[in-house]
Simulated scan of single mutants.
Amino acid sequence: MTFRYGPHADPVLAGFDLDVPAGDHLVIVGASGIGKSTLAALIAGVLRPQAGTVRVGGLPVAGASPAALADRRVLIPQEAYVFTGTVRENLTYLCPDLPDAAIDRAAARLGLAALLARLGGLDAHVRPVDLSAGERQQVALLRAWLSPAPLVILDEATCHLDPAAEARLEEAFADRPGTLVVVAHRVSSALRARRVLLLDGHTALLDSHPGLLARSAAYRELVGYGEQGATPVRSTPTPGRSAPLRAGSALPSSP
């Protein structure tokens, strides 16, 4: 797949193929502006490539209806959407028949029960302007957890949260049934992933965190490994041999 923002612009992603198996936990890392959020938007169907096809759950995202896409994937960007209405309406508009008990269980699992209490409960009326950026993100993350979609895409969705909250939420989403793709806000997200995709503008490498540390000087520099002598905290390597990918776009397989 290839994508550029204008007919005469250099491609952000060019000739790039990637399969994301069902149940995978993939973290995308790279320098700011390298194309990580573009890749997330292409997977979600927000952007369309000039060449190539993106499929989610076997469905080509180009031309798919909003309802069909919502059944397969949910995307949480850096600035999450919260609308004026009740807390319950904000949390369940992707699954409007969800019982309150299921919401409460999910909030407890994500460590967000205190947030719901602070907002006044599920029947409380909220306005986006009255919430902090972190509160809006957490409402959106809980909404994503409750979504029926088997693929969750977090595009720096924890950027307004502290590292401890980010780790807690990412680990919870990794335990959620389905597939998780994370555009990393902090490179520590890579230590929690099964696989890591490194974009550097020229090539792309896909491997486990330890595998990239061994293979890539750019990745070692990104995580500060060479300077700090850091030890990987946690990683679950993917079985099998990883191979370099050409720089470009992604073709995720069905979650």
Rank of each mutant, 00 (worst) to 15 (best):
C95E: 09
G178F: 04
P210R: 00
L18Y: 12
L180S: 00
L91V: 15
V196T: 01
E166A: 12
E170N: 08
V56M: 10
Y81Q: 12
L161K: 01
A167P: 06
A31N: 09
V223R: 00
P99W: 03
L131N: 06
V82P: 10
T236A: 10
L161Q: 00
S147R: 01
T203L: 13
R73G: 14
L119R: 14
L13E: 01
V82G: 07
R55D: 14
G201Q: 02
P7T: 12
E89H: 05
A218H: 04
G35C: 08
A107R: 06
G30L: 04
A133S: 01
L13G: 15
V139Q: 11
R109P: 11
G57Q: 02
L205K: 06
R72V: 00
S189A: 10
S216R: 00
A40V: 14
V27R: 10
V223S: 10
L110F: 07
G45W: 07
R186Q: 00
S189K: 02
V20C: 13
E135Q: 05
I43G: 12
A193Q: 00
D123H: 10
H202V: 14
A62V: 15
A250C: 04
E170T: 05
L212I: 07
L98F: 13
V233C: 01
L245Q: 10
T92W: 10
V46F: 10
E171W: 06
P252I: 13
L47G: 07
I34C: 13
Q228M: 14
T158R: 08
T53M: 09
L115Q: 02
G35S: 05
V54Q: 13
S253K: 13
L199E: 11
H8L: 15
P49C: 06
A157C: 08
A113F: 11
A167T: 06
P66W: 04
R215H: 07
E171V: 08
V196W: 11
L98K: 04
L146I: 09
I76P: 11
R136C: 06
Q138C: 07
D19A: 07
E227Q: 14
Y5T: 13
R48D: 15
P60G: 15
H8E: 15
L146A: 10
V223T: 12
D162G: 05
S189T: 06
R215W: 05
L47N: 10
P163K: 01
P163Q: 05
T2F: 11
G85E: 15
A149S: 04
A80W: 09
Y5M: 13
R72I: 15
A165S: 15
R48L: 15
E221M: 08
T158V: 00
L91D: 01
G229A: 02
D24S: 13
T179P: 15
P237D: 07
S65T: 05
A113R: 02
V46Y: 11
A113E: 03
V27A: 14
G15N: 11
V56I: 15
V27P: 01
A204Y: 00
T238L: 05
